[in-house]
Amino acid sequence: MEIVTANELISGATVYFLTEGCWGADIDRARVFQSEENAERDRVIKRANASGFLISVERETVRVAKGRVLANRLRERIRAEGPTAPRHRPQKPDIHNAVEFSHVSL
């Protein structure tokens, strides 16, 4: 299972492609692609790279437990939750960009 993640251009914040078809900061709302959905996942990545407001677009393997999306790699879990020592909340993305993107149908 994989999710698609990136950094938002202006804030640099970690963002995820969400189930709603737009981008946002909450990993638990990330769209989880099964292996049979690879073509769709790749279309998301392609569009993200072409969007102009997302950088460093990557896919990450995850598992889902009790309604939470958990990245397999610690790196990704730290990206999702912010630095651990001391704790800092993650950067806030510029949401208006994400909303705009949601109007682009896949």
Partner: peptide, 24 residues
């Protein structure tokens, strides 16, 4: 949008601006 990230990345790095895990 006039510059792509591929075009911009070397320019920002020349000015000390990296992209890290959470932000620039």
């Amino acid at each position: 949008g006039e510059l792509s990230e591929d075009q911009f990345r070397p320019l920002r790095l020349m000015n000390g601006l990296y992209l890290q895990l959470h932000a620039y």
